[in-house]
């Protein structure tokens, strides 16, 4: 039976959809059967990031309302064996699905797939409650900014209250040069404040914009730093121990992280 993992953040625009697309791609690349669920109902996005927008026939709301079977709504990615998308509805809103329905849906999906990744909407209201219903674990995406880390802290509290096992943190859009000159919070600063485990750090990378334009996740591209970071996180999700990347050309950063995780 597969695992259901939510990608969430509280704040919008920090990289949940980008992360879901890339982790799904990287997990499928390593041979896993993966289903990505776009739980951002009314603001469908994951389909375009994956380049699958032209193939949508049915969506998540059609499935829960019984207009079609789950199988009919799943889009199979032609580039990557094993990668599937369950798109969000674009013309409905978050109240058209209940947490109970989401729990049933993910329960059905985990029979078929090794990994079910849920792309959560921003916020802490019904859309968030739907996205976390029935998940086994959570990944929190935060950028090194006050508002993003603050919202992440709130989400961690809500996940605890929902009795979901301790979430893991992905720090996205890190700019090592800015950290070095004292103009951006470091990964250590953030984990120190949030007191949760880190599962990966994704650097700010122009390739994300380029690959998103093309609808081909960066994880498919060799030589993309963000893509490499996502591939590493996917391996950690699958249970492998992968050393943290050296994002800082002048080093120091990696050594500190290693020390922190007892790998030095």
């Amino acid at each position: 039976m597969g695992e259901v993992i939510v990608v969430t953040s509280g704040k919008g625009g920090v990289g949940k959809t980008t992360t879901t697309a890339n982790l799904g791609t990287a997990l499928a690349q390593s041979g896993a059967r993966v289903c990505l669920v776009d739980a951002d109902i009314g603001l469908r996005n994951l389909d375009v990031v994956l380049g699958l927008e032209n193939r949508i026939v049915y969506d998540l709301v059609d499935v829960v309302e019984g207009f079609c079977r789950l199988r009919q709504a799943l889009i199979r990615d032609k580039r990557l064996e094993g990668l599937h998308l369950l798109p969000a509805a674009q013309t409905k809103d978050k109240t058209s699905v209940t947490p109970e329905q989401m729990r049933e849906l993910t329960q059905e999906l985990r029979q078929e797939f090794e990994f079910v990744l849920i792309d959560s909407p921003a916020g802490i209201e019904q859309g968030f409650k739907n996205a976390i219903a029935g998940v086994d674990r959570a990944l929190i995406v935060a950028t090194p900014e006050v508002a993003s880390v603050r919202d992440a802290d709130r989400i961690i509290g809500l996940l605890e209250a929902a009795e979901i096992p301790p979430a893991k943190l992905i720090v996205n859009r890190l700019r090592p040069q800015m950290v070095r000159r004292g103009d951006m919070m470091s990964v250590e600063d953030i984990i120190d404040i949030l007191a949760i485990d880190l599962i990966g750090v994704v650097p700010e990378d122009e390739q994300i914009v380029v690959t998103t334009n093309r609808g081909e996740p960066a994880a498919l591209i060799q030589g993309s730093r963000a893509g490499e970071a996502y591939r590493n996180i996917a391996r950690r999700i699958a249970g492998e121990e992968v050393p943290f990347m050296d994002l800082d050309a002048n080093s120091g950063f990696l050594d500190r992280l290693r020390r922190m995780f007892g790998q030095a």
């Binding site: 900014e145 006050v146 880390v149 603050r150 802290d153 709130r154 950290v179 000159r181 004292g182 103009d183 951006m184 919070m185 470091s186 600063d189 404040i193």
Partner: peptide
Amino acid sequence: SSKQIAKDRLRNVLVHD
């Protein structure tokens, strides 16, 4: 540094939150 200011503000705001 702006990094230190961000950390201090964040700590304070999280105390209240």
